[in-house]
Computed example of a mutant assay.
Amino acid sequence: MRLLDLSAANWRKSSYSNPDGGECVEFSADFVTIVPVRDSKAPHGPVLTFAADGWSAFVSAVKGGELRV
């Protein structure tokens, strides 16, 4: 397992996050091949990483309404 230094990462909150502060997802677009994702309520908690192409497909599916909650 390779450790990723996220200390200087710029985090952006998803526009699909709940406006009242709950269920907030943040991601960083600072890396070429991976996208780190975290819970904004726990910024020092665990981070999930996804392949950039997989993350892009996920975001496209959400925007296209292909995923329903």
Rank of each mutant, 00 (worst) to 15 (best):
S56G: 12
I34Q: 11
M1I: 09
V32E: 14
D5A: 06
G54T: 05
A57W: 03
T33D: 15
V37D: 00
V35A: 06
A61S: 13
S56M: 11
E66C: 10
C24V: 08
Y16I: 04
V69S: 13
S60N: 13
S15A: 15
S7M: 09
L4T: 05
V47A: 01
K63C: 06
S56V: 06
P43N: 02
L4Q: 08
S60Y: 11
A51M: 08
A52E: 09
D30Q: 06
M1W: 10
V32F: 15
R2Y: 14
S40I: 00
I34V: 15
V47Y: 01
P43E: 06
K41P: 01
S40A: 13
D5P: 05
A42V: 09
F27E: 06
L6H: 04
D30H: 02
K41G: 11
A61M: 02
V59Q: 07
A57I: 03
V47T: 07
L3A: 14
G45D: 02
S17V: 03
L3M: 10
F31E: 05
P36R: 06
K41T: 03
G64I: 06
P36Y: 04
G65F: 03
H44Y: 12
G54W: 07
F58P: 02
D5K: 08
G45M: 07
Y16M: 10
L4G: 00
N18H: 11
D53H: 14
P36H: 04
L48N: 03
L4D: 03
P36S: 04
V47L: 03
K13H: 05
D39W: 00
L3W: 14
T49Q: 04
D39G: 00
R68P: 01
P43V: 00
S28W: 08
F50D: 01
A29F: 11
P46G: 11
G65V: 07
P46Q: 12
L4F: 10
C24M: 09
D5H: 09
W55I: 03
A61F: 06
L6I: 01
G22T: 14
P36C: 03
L4M: 10
G21T: 06
D20K: 12
L3H: 12
G45R: 05
V35L: 05
R2P: 13
W55N: 05
S7R: 15
R12F: 12
F58Q: 10
I34E: 07
S28T: 06
S14Q: 07
A29C: 13
A9H: 06
T33I: 09
L4E: 02
G54K: 07
A8P: 02
E26F: 10
R38W: 00
I34W: 08
F27C: 10
F58A: 10
S40L: 02
A9T: 01
K63Y: 11
D39E: 01
W11N: 03
E66R: 12
P43Y: 01
P43S: 04
H44T: 11
S7F: 08
P19T: 09
A57N: 09
A51D: 12
V25K: 03
V59H: 07
T33C: 11
E23N: 14
S15G: 10
T49G: 01
G64L: 11
A57D: 14
L67F: 15
V37A: 04
